[in-house]
């Protein structure tokens, strides 16, 4: 879908697009209202269905995107056709700027994971704003810095933590988000939460193929931890906490 074919920007979404409401995959909730205020009046809005493509690898990189609602993933396709998910963005995240600023073409693909509402800011809009007042884009620098820190940590985890432990860590973080005092549960305390995230997205977030992710889930089942259709049930939260904290090498 090309943003150029869309109708002019409708009124901003109501506050139901609370960026903190569902950011299980947004890798940090990078919502910056200042950035929005600066760029919104010249952006266009897209509404995407799950699986709908925002851009494909090789498309001209002349715009970047700000997610108002939903989730979008960036991925590459291996020669065999397998998708390698690089990142999943959620409400408040923006993406595509590094490619727009330094590359002629997008180096990856971008698809909606869920229904999504995305604002599109073109290069000409950004440059016009910069020429008006470069200093007003300081929030953009701050947001990019936060993204950089988040990706640095993701990279370190990919290098330094075993695949199985990354799965445990991801699930544990989700559990802690939903049940903030889960870390103080006595041994034997069960818990159950809804994740609303497809398995392939979790697999991408932890850097595993769907097949290897399924293997990790089977291993977790033996520990009383079950993930089925977005429902996570944990027989003993202390076990998951322990697995997430275990000291294992990347090749375990």
């Amino acid at each position: 879908m090309s943003p150029d074919t869309l109708a002019p920007l409708p009124a901003p979404l109501p506050a139901d697009g609370d960026p903190g409401a569902d950011d299980s995959c947004s890798m940090g909730g990078l919502f910056e209202t200042d950035v929005l205020d600066i760029l919104m009046d010249r952006s266009r809005r897209l509404r995407l269905l799950p699986g709908e493509s925002l851009f494909a690898q090789g498309d001209p990189a002349d715009r970047f995107f700000l997610i108002r609602d939903g989730k979008v993933r960036l991925y590459t396709l291996e020669p065999g056709g397998n998708a390698v998910t690089l990142h999943v963005f959620g409400p408040g995240d923006f993406f595509g700027l590094p490619a727009m600023l330094g590359l002629r073409h997008y180096p990856v693909n971008g698809d909606a994971v869920t229904e999504a509402v995305v604002d599109v800011i073109t290069r000409s809009t950004l440059f016009a704003r910069l020429e008006e007042d470069g200093g007003r884009l300081m929030p953009l620098l701050t947001s990019l810095g936060r993204r950089h820190r988040t990706m640095t940590r993701s990279l370190a985890e990919l290098k330094g933590i075993s695949a199985f432990r990354r799965v445990c860590l991801w699930l544990w973080r989700e559990l802690e988000k939903a049940i903030p005092d889960a870390g103080t549960h006595p041994a034997g305390t069960p818990a159950a939460i809804c994740l609303h995230v497809p398995h392939y997205v979790i697999a991408g977030a932890v850097g595993l193929t769907p097949e290897n992710f399924s293997r990790a889930l089977r291993r977790l089942e033996k520990l009383g931890i079950h993930l089925h259709r977005g429902h996570l049930s944990v027989g003993d939260t202390a076990v998951l906490r322990q697995m997430a904290a275990a000291d294992t090498s990347p090749e375990d």
Binding site: L74, P98, G102, L103, P107, L144, H148, L155
Partner: peptide, 8 residues
């Protein structure tokens, strides 16, 4: 952006 592209 250069740093981010390196990370990606």
């Amino acid at each position: 952006s250069v740093g981010l592209r390196h990370r990606i």
